[in-house]
Design a protein around this nucleic acid. Sequence first.
DNA 1: ATAATTTCTTAACCTACATCAATGTGAAAG
DNA 2: CTTTCACATTGATGTAGGTTAAGAAATTAT
Lengths: 197, 197
Amino acid sequence: MHNFRFTTFLTSNISSSENEIDYLLSRCKIKKVKKGEILLRPGEECKHSFFVESGLLRQFAIDDKGKEHIIQFAPENWFIADRSSVYFGEPSVYFIQALEESKVFLIEEQLFLQLSESDPGFLKSNLRLLHNHIRHLQKRIKQLLSDSAEERYLDFIKIYPDLTLRVPQVYIASYLGITPESLSRIRSELAGKNFTK
Amino acid sequence: MHNFRFTTFLTSNISSSENEIDYLLSRCKIKKVKKGEILLRPGEECKHSFFVESGLLRQFAIDDKGKEHIIQFAPENWFIADRSSVYFGEPSVYFIQALEESKVFLIEEQLFLQLSESDPGFLKSNLRLLHNHIRHLQKRIKQLLSDSAEERYLDFIKIYPDLTLRVPQVYIASYLGITPESLSRIRSELAGKNFTK
DNA sequence: ATAATTTCTTAACCTACATCAATGTGAAAG
DNA sequence: CTTTCACATTGATGTAGGTTAAGAAATTAT
């Protein structure tokens, strides 16, 4: 029997009976995705939430001028989905793509709703996930409004030290809302500061 | 008996029995707030969700340099709250303030959770509210990453034509993430374009 | 190993928006 | 009516970050 991260995640984060968790697992599909593979594109309805068992995904948009903007990274143990598309059944405006070879669990929204109704413990966990998401989005807006690119980068490496090493800088720049050239400049300035101190 | 907007909102948006709605209403307090009055400040825990019965509120943050950044406006019929603070019981980093003389309903989180557990119809509405909020936040991030100040302003007046007239431009600028001077310039350029067309 | 490709850095120049400062306008308050 | 105060405009100048372009460094493939 497999010992999935997803199983561990569920048992430690969801105050639900073992039965319920088994049921949930039995209703999820697991999918292997290659590096670069796309799980969602603009115009499509996002049919699943994805739990990243291993590897790394990103959610991003492409603007009018053809530039990519990363909304979210999702390394192992994270959920990723276009929540509005999943929930409202609307076409998404985002891509979801694997940045590394990954394994993901596909979870249908219907299952979430069903378990939230029948099981208060599951509802709690579901609401917690949603609120974590909201907190994250809100912080992002606040940072984009208040902080300079350098400040945002410093926060990024504090919050995601692993990703800083793991992800090419183009993507980090795209998450921060700047060009890779600017990020490179910021990095060399920061390096300078540390030496002279 | 009063005919509140809140009542209308609840009956038309919540697929719940009349009893449940009456119960909800009976457990909410209504509060009159003067223009400029502050309902939440950084460091405080946000204890309620606010439903704006009349008037206009804003949620904003003040950054290190003392500049204000508006996260959200809430005119009548809108909810406003710092969701992460309400849900996680953490101290907020935001202000919530009345921009006009307003009446708001105060709703305790406990009540939301309780009704979500006991009533599937209420749960649905609660989830819908949360997902609307998420959609809104996500769009905001995408815009801040992709669009110019002018584009964001044009979208603002499309989405909130009423607020465009109702709210001083300083606040709109602060919502868009620019200075009032820049907004004024954008407006005069746009005016120019329309004349010559 | 060596070539090929992807990623990163550096430099010169450019642009959107910020800052500072002065002036104008319109609504509320005396 | 006129004074005040909050709000808006306009102009001169500054700056963070963008753009373009070239080369260096690091991975990946052969």
